[in-house]
């Protein structure tokens, strides 16, 4: 199998990342830019989680009925923290947008550029 197909999961997350990047840059509505940012963040979290996968592996919770090999628990822990970071950034971004909307009345970057 060519390496591209073997690591299809990684390639898929990269494509998602670039879609997010495209939205972040192209869209002129600020909220859509924040959405683009979130797509990029989700793509990176997806990449980190899938990197922990092991063939035929079980969820890393020991207990009755769970047997080796286990997925690596570390990516899951990292992504949990990453998600909270993403939420925090988005919260501050939306709060800023509320203020920008109240002060300038619009959330379109082209209109705003001329204004302030």
């Amino acid at each position: 199998m060519s390496p591209l197909l073997e690591n299809l999961d990684y390639v898929a997350t990269t494509i998602l990342f670039c879609i997010g990047l495209w939205t972040l840059i192209a869209d002129s509505n600020l909220i859509k830019k924040v959405m683009g940012l979130n797509i990029m963040e989700t793509a990176v979290f997806a990449f980190i989680v899938t990197s922990g996968m092991i063939e035929g592996g079980d969820a890393p919770i020991t207990g009755p009925g769970a047997e080796l090999p286990f997925m690596s628990p570390i990516p899951h822990a990292l992504v949990l923290t990453g998600i909270v970071v993403a939420v925090s950034t988005t919260a501050v971004a939306l709060a800023l947008l509320l203020r920008v909307h109240r002060e300038h009345g619009t959330l379109d970057i082209d209109e705003l550029r001329g204004r302030w």
């Binding site: 990029m40 971004a93 302030w116």
Partner: peptide, 30 residues
């Protein structure tokens, strides 16, 4: 008046940078 939009631009670019850094951390871990 301009503080909101200045902070937002800073956030947008800063968050994009952080995400790229996280991607690199993920790559190093892999």
């Amino acid at each position: 008046r301009g503080a909101g939009i200045a902070a937002f631009r800073y956030l947008l670019m800063g968050a994009a940078a952080s995400i790229v850094i996280l991607l690199s951390v993920g790559l190093l871990y892999t």
